[in-house]
Design a protein around this nucleic acid. Structure first.
Lengths: 265, 265
DNA sequence: AGGGCAAGACTGGTCGGACCAGTTGCGGAC
DNA sequence: GTCCGCAACTGGTCCGACCAGTCTTGCCCT
C-alpha cells in the first residue's frame, strides 16, 4: 500500500457535481484566483457541453459554498470570491440552532479559541502590534459614553486584532464565526423573549450593556493588553477565559456555568 | 430602538432563496425534523407555485448545506438530515487549501480544542466514562501490533470519546472537522510528495507511524487518561497540547513550531 | 395459494427553448 | 464635448419533454 491517494466515489456523481469539482480544482490549483470572473452561464454550457440548468445548479452549489458570487446584469460572469468566515459562521449557527448544542457549548468554544489566541498573541506580538492594540483601547474609551453598539463594535475590533496577531487566519475565521453566532443567538433570544413578554425591557448584562458594562469591559481589556504586552501568554489566556466566563455566566444554566468555571483558574 | 430584531435584506432575494428560507425556518421551528421527508419536486413546485427548476435550485442549496439528502428513484421525497460535522470539515479544509492558512494553523486550532476538551473532560468525567476510556486503551493495546490504520482508528476513537465526555456537541464536531482536515492534508501532501519523488518512501513520523510510534501514542494516551481520571484538568490540557506538539513538530516550519511551542508549558 | 418476476408508476437528473429583468457600454443626438 | 437612450449582454424563472433509477403492484407460473 504505497500510495495513499484518496479516490472519490465514481458512482452517482451527477453532472453538475463534476462541474463544481472542476471549478474547485482549478481554484486549488491556482489556475483561477479570487477576483477572477468565470465565463457567463451561456458560455459555460458550451464549454462543459451541458444544458444551462445543469450549469446553474453547479453555480448554485458553488455560490452556497461561498466560492462564487452571481450578480444579475453584470457584464462579466460569476465572480470568484476568497474564503470567508461567513460559511463557518452559518454552519456553526445552524448546528447550534438545529443540533443539540446550546449556548454554553458556544461559550466554551469561544473560551478555547480566545484563550489560545491571547496566549499565542502574547508570545508573538511585536511592538507595533501592542501599539495598535493600545490605539484601539483609546478608540474604545472615546466610545464609552456613546452608543452601545459603537462601543461593542470597537470592543469586537480589538479582539479581532488580537486574533490577527497570531497570524492564524483559520483561528480568526473560527473566532469570528463563534462570536457572530453568539451575538446572533442572543439577538434571537432577545427577540423571542421580547415577543413573549410583549416588548418588555431588555435583560441586563447581555449585549447592550450600558455605561457601567462598557467601563468594565474597557478595564478588562486594558489588563488584557497589558498582559499581552508583557508577553505573559498563560496569564493572558486565563484572563480572557475569566472575562468571558464572568460576562456570560448569567446567561448559562447552572451546570453549564459550573463546567465552564473549571476553565477559569 | 426597543426591538433589536434582525431583518434580512428584502431586495435581490431570489425565488429559490425564499424556498430555502421556508424550509430552514420550518426546521428550526421543529415543524420538520431530521428523518422526515420533503414532498417530491413535482409536489413542491405546486405548493410553492414555482417551476421545477426553481425548486431544484433550492434543493441544491439545501443539499450543499447538509440539510437534505436527495436519492434518485426513492419513492419518498428528499430526506431531511441532522447536522453533521462534515460541513465544518469541508469549510475548514477549503479554507486551508484556498486561504492563507497552513498546516501549523490547523495544529494550533487542534491544540486549542483538544486542550480545552481534555480539561473539561477531566472535571466532569464520571466513573463510567473513565472505565470506558480504559476499555478503549485496551482496544488500542490489542491493535498495537496490527495494521497501522486499525491502531490509528482506535486512537481517534479514544480522543473522540474524550470530546464526547464534555457533552459539547459543537466541540465534538469542530474537533472532528479539524482532525479530519489534518489527516486529509497529510494524505494530499504525501500524495503530491510521492508523485514528485516518484513513489519514494513515506516520510517518518506522520500518519502511518509504525510500531514504535504506536507504542509511544499508547503510552501518552495512558497518561492522559490517568490525568483525566484524577480530575487534573489543567494537567490533562497541557499534556495533550504537549503530545500534539511533539507529534506534529516535525511537519511544521521552524517559526510555526516555535509559536506553537509557546502553548506547551 | 404462495412465490417470483415483469410492468408500471413514481422518484430525481438532464436537456432545450423561451421570456423577463437588471446592467452596462456604446453611439447618436444635442 | 456632454449627455441620454437604446441595444446587447448578464442572470432569474418558467415550461415541457425525455431519460434513468427504484420501489410497488399485481399478474403469471408453479
Amino acid at each position: 500500500m504505497a500510495s495513499s491517494i484518496t479516490f472519490r466515489p465514481a458512482v452517482g456523481v451527477r453532472t453538475y457535481e463534476r462541474i463544481v469539482d472542476q471549478v474547485e480544482e482549478a481554484l486549488t490549483a491556482k489556475q483561477l484566483s479570487p477576483g477572477d470572473h468565470l465565463p457567463s452561464e451561456r458560455m459555460l454550457m458550451e464549454q462543459f457541453d451541458v444544458s444551462r440548468s445543469t450549469v446553474r445548479e453547479a453555480l448554485r452549489v458553488l455560490e452556497s459554498r461561498g466560492l462564487v458570487e452571481l450578480r444579475h446584469g453584470g457584464r462579466s460572469g460569476p465572480r470568484l470570491l476568497e474564503p470567508s468566515p461567513k460559511l463557518l459562521e452559518r454552519d456553526i449557527t445552524s448546528m447550534v440552532r438545529l443540533g443539540r448544542s446550546g449556548f454554553g457549548d458556544l461559550i466554551q468554544l469561544r473560551m478555547a479559541l480566545d484563550g489560545t489566541a491571547c496566549a499565542v498573541a502574547a508570545h508573538c506580538a511585536t511592538d507595533e502590534d501592542v501599539e495598535d492594540l493600545r490605539g484601539r483601547l483609546e478608540a474604545m474609551e472615546a466610545a464609552v459614553d456613546g452608543a452601545d453598539v459603537e462601543f461593542a463594535r470597537a470592543d469586537a475590533a480589538l479582539h479581532e486584532r488580537i486574533w490577527a496577531i497570531t497570524g492564524n487566519d483559520l483561528l480568526v475565521a473560527t473566532g469570528q464565526a463563534v462570536t457572530e453566532s453568539i451575538v446572533q443567538l442572543i439577538a434571537v433570544d432577545l427577540g423571542s423573549e421580547g415577543r413573549t413578554q410583549g416588548g418588555g425591557p431588555i435583560p441586563e448584562g447581555v449585549m447592550p450593556e450600558g455605561q457601567d458594562g462598557a467601563q468594565d469591559s474597557l478595564r478588562r481589556d486594558r489588563i488584557l493588553v497589558d498582559l499581552i504586552a508583557e508577553g505573559d501568554g498563560a496569564g493572558a489566556g486565563s484572563w480572557i477565559r475569566r472575562c468571558l466566563w464572568e460576562r456570560f455566566e448569567g446567561l448559562l444554566e447552572p451546570d453549564e456555568a459550573r463546567t465552564l468555571r473549571s476553565l477559569v483558574s
